[in-house]
Amino acid sequence: MNKKILSVATLVIGSISGISDVLAKPEFVIPAGATGCTNCHLDDFGFGFKAGVLDAFKGGLPGLKAFLHPTPIKSGDSKPILHPINTYWDVTVGGTPLVLPLLVSDAEDDMFTVNISTPTNALPVKGAILSQERTDIASNLPAIDFKWRPTVAQANQTYTVNFTAQEKGTGRTLLSNTVTATINVWPARKTATKNVNQFKIQRAQWSNNTLTLAGAVIFKNGLTTAQRAAALKALYLNMRTNSGLVVGTASHLTVDASGNWKKTVPFKAATVPCTVKLEYEGLNATSPVKLAPKTCLQ
């Protein structure tokens, strides 16, 4: 194969050993259990990928192995299902740790483990841990939490993490679907007022020249009624594009008893942001705008 054509198996070896440019020789496919180029590619020259290879690679080496050597599904055995989570998350250095609940369904109630991997060339989520298995109260499903408290050195970066659930136990090796999360890490807060622990945006969608935003405010424990009222009085929505351009005008947010908020803002196609960044009390939240027009502002 040509030096510049990397097979999926080569990418696996590169990610493990730090090699970024290697010859795709047969010996590099051994860790993935491949027998040749056409296990993953459309021909012996390394051009194109077979359907499913790139999705399998999101699960790292275990996902690729499962693709190359699928385990025959036995009677009474089905793949675990890793339930969807929000695609975009925000966490502030020195603030409340990020916790992503990973819920798993399995028809046979098999035991499972959760695998974490990062795409090729993505930043590693150093310091992240997985909790012990627990039962999610709302769904009554088994769950494992991904927990991360980023450091100062990890601020102002975006991280991508892939999750898969895999059966464990005798004769149980099936791998679930892949769930991906994109995490924005913000620098530590510098503002004096810190009545809010988390400021979330859960929805951003543009339609009929209107941008609809929705999210939640999580207040600091132990606030007095006066402190809570003061925080709400000063709760203004400041919007920027992904490049930092201010869009729209600051507007006051009204929060319900559960801390949820919703806001509709008029935006013409030429001025709507592709990604909206919100800020309050030094906390940041980011979300891509669904249905944004091609003319959206970067």
Rank of each mutant, 00 (worst) to 15 (best):
L223M: 10
L223D: 02
L223G: 10
T224R: 12
T224P: 11
T224S: 04
T224A: 03
T224M: 09
T225C: 14
T225V: 12
T225I: 09
T225W: 00
T225A: 14
T225E: 03
A226S: 07
A226N: 01
A226W: 06
Q227Y: 03
Q227T: 06
Q227R: 03
Q227G: 08
Q227D: 05
Q227C: 00
Q227K: 07
Q227M: 04
R228Y: 09
R228H: 01
R228N: 08
R228E: 06
R228M: 03
A229G: 03
A229Y: 05
A229H: 04
A229F: 09
A230G: 06
A231E: 01
A231H: 04
L232C: 01
L232A: 10
L232D: 02
L232Q: 05
L232F: 04
K233D: 15
K233H: 14
A234P: 00
A234T: 10
A234Q: 13
A234E: 12
A234G: 06
A234V: 06
L235S: 02
L235Y: 11
L235A: 00
L235F: 10
L235K: 05
Y236K: 08
Y236F: 06
Y236A: 10
Y236W: 13
Y236S: 04
Y236T: 12
L237M: 08
N238H: 09
N238V: 03
N238D: 11
N238T: 09
N238P: 07
M239H: 08
M239E: 05
M239G: 02
M239F: 00
M239T: 07
M239Q: 05
R240L: 07
R240H: 05
T241N: 01
T241R: 02
N242R: 09
N242Q: 14
N242C: 11
N242A: 06
N242W: 04
N242L: 10
N242G: 10
N242S: 12
N242D: 00
S243H: 02
S243D: 15
G244F: 03
G244V: 11
G244C: 08
G244M: 10
G244K: 11
G244E: 05
G244S: 07
G244L: 11
L245T: 15
L245G: 04
L245W: 01
L245C: 08
L245V: 13
V246F: 07
V246N: 15
V246I: 13
V247K: 12
V247F: 02
V247S: 12
V247C: 01
G248C: 11
G248D: 05
G248R: 07
T249Q: 03
T249H: 14
T249D: 12
T249R: 01
T249K: 14
A250R: 13
A250S: 15
A250N: 13
A250G: 00
A250Y: 12
A250V: 10
A250L: 12
A250K: 09
A250Q: 14
S251Q: 15
S251H: 14
H252P: 08
H252V: 12
H252D: 07
H252K: 13
H252Q: 09
H252A: 00
H252M: 02
L253E: 09
L253N: 09
L253T: 06
T254I: 15
V255G: 05
D256Q: 03
D256R: 11
A257T: 14
A257G: 12
A257I: 10
A257F: 14
S258Q: 11
S258K: 15
S258V: 13
S258P: 06
S258R: 00
G259S: 10
G259K: 02
G259W: 07
G259Q: 08
G259T: 01
G259D: 00
N260E: 15
N260W: 00
N260S: 14
N260I: 12
